[in-house]
Amino acid sequence: MSMLHHPVDQTGVEERIARFNTRSIKKESKLQGLRLALSMIDLTTLEGKDTAGKVRQMCYKAMHLADDLPDIPQVAAVCVYPNHVKTAKIALGESGIKVASVATAFPSGNSSRKIKLEDTKMAVGQGADEIDMVISRGAFLAGDVQFVSDEIAAIKDACGEARLKVILETGELSTLDNIRRASVLAMQSGADFIKTSTGKIQPAATMPVTLVMLEAIRDYYDETGIMIGMKPAGGISTAKSALQYLVMLYETLGPEWMSNEWFRFGASSLANDILLQLGKEKMGVYYSPDYISKD
């Protein structure tokens, strides 16, 4: 039997996470880690009340996280709904920041194949560099893995040049075994990235879930030689937890994955917490959110 389909040892996962969380990252390595984490962020706004103005504001922030702090990188991408892709694309101009768009009847994924494909094509047509799709959790949980696999493959086809992130919505998959199975299914069906959550369901990204997905990526790489990216999303809001995720990434997948080409944080408030830490390093005293833009 292939290594890809072994069951997950839940207790083992939890104990391993506990060990990651005891790592102490200080001084120069902490700063390096924080800057790396900033560069891996997909700055996200996925609200019904999003406007072109809010998207432009977020794009400005993506390019100018904190101009008065030294050596602050840009984020990796902004993540928006398909109807805001064009606005974001124009606002970001030549900055090199990618535009990611959710698609496929995000966040529930409950619609027809046809509409999901149209949704994807629209986002790509408007210039999206990356597509974040959701899988049909209902079909997956009902055991119809073929349906889910075909759907991912069809969407991948519609993506063309755009990279495809497949959202498993782990908060709805119940068990780590299911999460492992869904990860493997997504990778085999054409995902470039696998992503934990939409951010609309609790729990969103957690360390155990992310570890299971990272291990699936590692095993898939060992078997096929294909690198797949990882994106935990939702619920990661502190610099400290971002560093713990990076430790886990490094120790599970190694240095090749330590860039925004292969790892992303889907987050809206994480950037500000990291900037607070970097502000503290610059000032030598604890910093205040008053000096950092909210959105």
Binding site: G279, M283, V285, Y286, Y287, S288, P289, D290, Y291
Partner: peptide, 8 residues
């Protein structure tokens, strides 16, 4: 000193 210097 920390009470007095904390920016927040």
């Amino acid at each position: 000193t920390h009470f007095a210097s904390h920016m927040d």
